[in-house]
Design a protein around this nucleic acid. Structure first.
Lengths: 170, 170
DNA sequence: TGAGATACATCAAGTGCTTGATGAAGACCA
DNA sequence: TGGTCTTCATCAAGCACTTGATGTATCTCA
């Protein structure tokens, strides 16, 4: 709230706030920042949690797969893996068939660390479910699933290329 | 539904994927990456778009407020503002009452640039609405709004720290 | 009126992640 | 069987953003 005399918000009817994309971004942003602080207090950055929970869900996943799941580049994952391996949270095992591929697994210490984080994250999830009620909670989950499934089908509109874009193509 | 395992049993993939927090993160992640590429093709990074659209919605906003809206630190905003000012997309005006405060406004060039980006982003939004149908689309928007409103009321659980739990946070 | 509180802006230093490029190994197929 | 394609991993360089700290201006209240 700024220091304008009239309490009425001067946000003249913009249709931006009615967008699902905007609401989705705001919701996820608030969600991430909400859980980031308590996680850091127990010494687990959000990125580390993402790795640990992914390994719990999908043991033996490769770094490249992991990168796609948590939405960062393989290089970023390599750095995370190096740290978590150094601190004994996870371990790398050579793939039985593909010798150049490294499978990632949680160690017992990693599972223990993850449990502490889960105590916080599951509490947040419970808060959301309690706030919305069981019916709306399931509805929201269903609708988000539909969005996730449909998003890859979107084809960006062509922005009169050929005039602006010389020949750059990948 | 499965019969409940032991309370402290390791969480399974099915349980994780049913979380709203997980779905929310996946949906936003896919959404951001989906629109990031076409935006970059017309020379507008996602972070720049966030600034421009925010200034469209709330003209005269300060850098500090902007930082809270788009979820980054004031320092990061300062860098963005410097770039967008240098390229003539936005301009800084001294606040009439607070001389140390800089209000941010779109320039005509900025509005033009934003229009190009909006062509893409609004198309994505339309795709989502068409995919879900009008009723589900409005439902999703409503539910996300509830989540955004309720999230600040969450109090992280105390993880055996010495401090005493404050009764309520305002 | 003047001390403390609050909010904005900005400087400096460090970190995490990105784009870009390279090498190695299994998969596909004539 | 050897060429081509795909995927994984990793090196190197650069940039975007963060944490931490400082200075300034306005507001609050004794």
């Amino acid at each position: 709230m700024s220091s304008s005399p009239a309490p009425d918000a001067p946000i003249t009817g913009e249709q931006i706030f009615t967008r699902v994309a905007w609401a989705l971004r705001r919701a996820d942003l608030n969600l991430q920042t909400a859980k980031e602080r308590p996680l850091r207090e127990i010494g687990i950055p959000g990125s580390h949690y993402s790795v640990l929970i992914s390994l719990q869900v999908t043991p033996g996943v490769t770094a490249a797969e992991l990168a796609r799941v948590i939405g960062v580049t393989p290089q970023a994952v390599a750095l995370l893996v190096a740290k978590l391996t150094a601190s004994g949270m996870i371990e790398r095992r050579t793939h039985p068939r593909h010798r150049s591929v490294q499978e990632l697994h949680l160690t017992d210490a990693g599972r223990e660390e993850l449990a502490k984080a889960e105590y916080i994250v599951s509490d947040l999830e419970r808060h959301i479910r309690d706030s919305l009620g069981d019916k709306s909670y399931r509805q929201l989950r269903e609708l988000l699933g539909q969005v996730i499934d449909e998003l890859p089908n979107w084809v960006p509109p062509q922005t009169d290329r050929g005039t602006v874009d010389p020949a750059a193509d990948q």
